[in-house]
Design a protein around this nucleic acid. Structure first.
Lengths: 242, 242
DNA sequence: CGAGGGGTTGACGCCGATCAAAGCTGGTGG
DNA sequence: CCACCAGCTTTGATCGGCGTCAACCCCTCG
């Protein structure tokens, strides 16, 4: 088996071990969903499985490491930082999403990827991806699907989160959290104000005001711990009429 | 050769005739750039070549026609219209871009596509694309490239055109026009105020004010006809410091 | 010549950015 | 166990930018 040149084993707290894609119980929604089990028997580079704590930087924009990540659990934000230090979140991704796919076309990452939650993911060398792509054309189709999904998300970001009044945008954001990131009990984790502000492009204080108001109006309410629920129809009204 | 069931020949003013992809002099930048000439000898459905006048609707969101378009000349805007009638332009595409690729994954178009200019394009049936994809895996890679490019554009849209003050956004928009849509003389066509407003999400009057101010400051000036040039460094200053 | 559409400019009011200060909460150490 | 602190959230006060409405200009076309 090839040597892993980047990590010293056993001293990396985040490293959980080699991924066993052929036995992965959630492979149906992961990056290699279409491949047969035998595909993983002759990989030149290992696929590793990590857990990162909140705030971890998975990779930075304009660097050229050589890994694609498939998210198993948790949320990752893709961030663009302007030269003046301010930053804008351009995407928020969860289980099943693949990030770093731009390495298949170009040299370096297009965003900085940061763990929002505790994030559980598989780290796949680009070379492995290329190898599997050439052997299994179905993987190309899956790459296309991933890209199309992210394109749709980006478009939604423009239309829903970058248009309208602050109130409307916050409402849209909550609807998105509820739709894409709610757990089996239909509750979702409320991001901190800074992240929300960076998503919709308004000031932190304004986000806080809107969220506080929604809480007072019981449109948004704590369910358990840090998990919240919201009145979807009320929020939809707001997105339409302000 | 298969019948063209949609168009009555010779009565359609926009129809220019069958495309001859194997002889196309700009094929290197079109959708089928990687395919050998022989690939086009056994197509089940024809590929047609059209010119549409400005304002033509190529397709509408949420309809399910079955064509992908490869742009040869001119500009196409992808529009999302909200339920209240307002609309937002999420992408502006030029020669070499392919639109309608979402049909490869789903049933219907995700945007309304409208010609900005006189637009010259090839209309490719989805079935033909699938057929060629299965025969030539290289086409899959090209689809991936197209999607990645559009994803990068969408991200740029979020970061550059949906962030900052009105002045900064207009400056960013001009820089984008100059970078991506300038002709061989480095001049570009100035869009009308309504389109610009729909791109950056601000009021028409505000766009007008900014453009007028830039003209007065000679940061933007008419070159010939409706073609303009701009002072790039001045605009870059503005995007940074307002 | 008049009508109509797009662009420009002015006046006004409101939304939201900014600065500042005061709660709240979780973590640390005495 | 409580005091204290740091970081996050909330709230208030103020001011500027921008949306809105309206008038006017300019050009094209009938």
């Amino acid at each position: 088996m090839a040597k892993d040149s980047e990590h010293t084993f056993c001293t990396n707290a985040e490293w959980l071990g080699r991924a066993h894609c052929d036995k992965c119980h959630i492979r149906h929604l992961m990056f290699f969903s279409e491949l047969p089990e035998t595909a993983f028997h002759k990989l030149l580079q290992p696929i590793d499985h990590y857990i990162y704590p909140p705030g971890s930087v998975l990779y930075e924009a304009d660097t050229h490491k050589k890994f694609i990540y498939s998210i198993r659990r948790g949320m990752v934000k893709l961030v663009h930082e302007a030269q003046d230090g301010s930053c804008r979140i351009v995407r928020l991704l969860g289980p099943g999403a693949t990030i770093g796919l731009e390495l298949l076309e170009g040299e370096d990452y297009h965003h900085t990827a940061i763990a929002v939650n505790h994030v559980d993911l598989c780290k796949i060398p680009v070379s492995t991806t290329r190898q599997l792509q050439s052997e299994y054309p179905a993987l190309c189709k899956h790459v296309g699907q991933q890209l199309q999904e992210q394109l749709d998300l980006a478009d939604q970001w423009i239309v829903a989160l970058s248009t309208g009044t602050a109130k409307q945008r916050v409402a849209q954001l909550l609807l998105i959290m509820e739709e894409f990131f709610s757990d089996e009990e239909d509750a979702f984790i409320l991001l901190n104000r800074e992240d929300m502000a960076a998503m919709i492009g308004i000031a932190v204080e304004t986000v806080s005001r809107m969220i506080a108001k929604f809480k007072r109006q019981k449109i948004l309410y704590r369910y358990k711990d840090n998990r919240f629920m919201c009145n979807v129809t009320a929020l939809q009204q707001i997105t339409r009429f302000g």
